[in-house]
Design a binder for these strands. Structure first.
Lengths: 240, 240
DNA sequence: ATTATACGCTGTTAATTATCATAACGCGCT
DNA sequence: AGCGCGTTATGATAATTAACAGCGTATAAT
């Protein structure tokens, strides 16, 4: 898989990606004119990451502006004790490189693919130069960053208000309603990662999932989850 | 006090504020030229809030771009159950209006003065227009928003990692080291507000402060706190 | 002076969560 | 197949935190 992405990298990513047709073009580049756009398009590199591969590493210098075309990633940070905390999950429209690209020299968080993920990579200096010359583009970026950040903060606050069961319910509904839009889905993360996300222990995540199963709220087949009593789960999320 | 701020409001805030000398000018407006600046200066209104006064209210439409000149505020959000959560505290250089000014029509959080606070208020549309025409200004704003957000996220993550005692120690050190730069200070918030900030109950905040007092780590006189054993407090914050 | 009210403080009990221990299971590897 | 390893699973116990109840104090309003 590493080979695959390297191959695409060497091809300059031209194989699968046409900027003109890109869904995301309107999000980031609606105020960028055709000649500028072709300039951006020439330097962009499309890159694929398999589930589990690290996209950016905490502490590394930020050289690139990255946006997601496809897939699912986690943002995480390693504490001084070596334990990870997951800050959020992002799918394409939510993710604007890293939040700190315009204020920090190094990545404050790591980004890891939790499903096969395709990103487009632009040289950060080029993007910055464009932003400095095109205020509407800069404003678009600002709005995107703002939205992404707000979403993370609101989600964190919502989780903080809840107890163990409510937090687990919240996560299940997050994947069911927001990510997969289906009552049945395959969890893209381990129980430990759920724990890192909601700030509880792995054992309690496992235990609580088992309880939900015993209470016939969900069915579990390894990582496959089926939500059989959504109302109850919603209720636990809202009031637990 | 309400009268005082009204008076200043009616004076168009010209009484005490000269934009040319303003410390914050370089932060937000370093890339705004003299004529633009005088334009901005003409429409700005300086406003004072006494401790406890609400500056912006969650849910209200965002019409203004606000930045702090002086003071201390809290950002908070009310949950569906009516309970408040405090997201962060901000002093002048940290605070860039509300994070969502460029992505949302309404305030997602409330801002309340927890010390007497002076802010400068600009019409949001005017600021947006300036940003749309001056990309460097837009970039400056973006960097500010990014920094402010990162600080909030990192602080929240640090708190999340800790237990009750570590969280209390964290808060005490936050005010001592970051806000007041003094081992002795007056807490600008109540025990309940500390609880709302760290996500624990008021009783436990009070109890823990008492324990710290019994352990001779701090001295307490109502809201006055004196940190007598900073090393131990730091240790509790780092490992508790 | 009296009432109301918010706040700070403490003790007790109940609930929640972490920690430790153990075991089954799946999966890649040889 | 058998081994090693990480994940999932469950139980017992300890630690932590919440919830409830009570009480004193300061402050402001009547």
């Amino acid at each position: 898989m590493q080979n695959l992405s390297k191959t695409i990298n060497n091809n300059m990513g031209k194989t699968n990606c046409s900027c003109e047709k890109c869904q995301l073009k309107s999000l980031f580049f609606s105020h960028v004119d055709a000649s500028e756009m072709s300039n951006i398009c020439d330097i962009k590199v499309e890159k694929q990451y398999s589930k589990g591969e690290i996209i950016t590493t905490e502490g590394e210098p930020i050289r690139e502006f990255i946006y997601m075309k496809e897939g699912l990633v986690k943002l995480s940070k390693t504490g001084t004790d070596g334990k990870d905390q997951i800050i959020s999950f992002s799918k394409p429209f939510d993710f604007v490189s890293l939040l700190s690209v315009f204020s920090s020299k190094t990545y404050k968080y790591s980004v890891t693919a939790i499903e096969d993920t395709t990103v487009c990579i632009l040289d950060l200096d080029v993007v910055k130069n464009h932003a400095q010359e095109n205020a509407l583009f800069a404003m678009d970026l600002m709005a995107r960053i703002s939205e992404a950040t707000d979403k993370i903060l609101l989600d964190n606050l919502a989780i903080k208000r809840k107890h163990l069961k409510g937090r687990i319910a919240h996560v299940l509904l997050y994947f069911s309603d927001y990510i997969y839009k289906n009552d049945e889905f395959e969890l893209p993360i381990s129980r430990r990662e759920i724990a890192e996300y909601i700030g509880m222990t792995t054992e309690n995540v496992i235990r609580t999932l088992s309880e939900f199963r015993k209470d016939k709220i969900i069915k579990i087949f390894g990582k496959d989850i089926l939500i059989s009593d959504k109302k109850r789960l919603q209720n636990i999320s809202d009031f637990g």
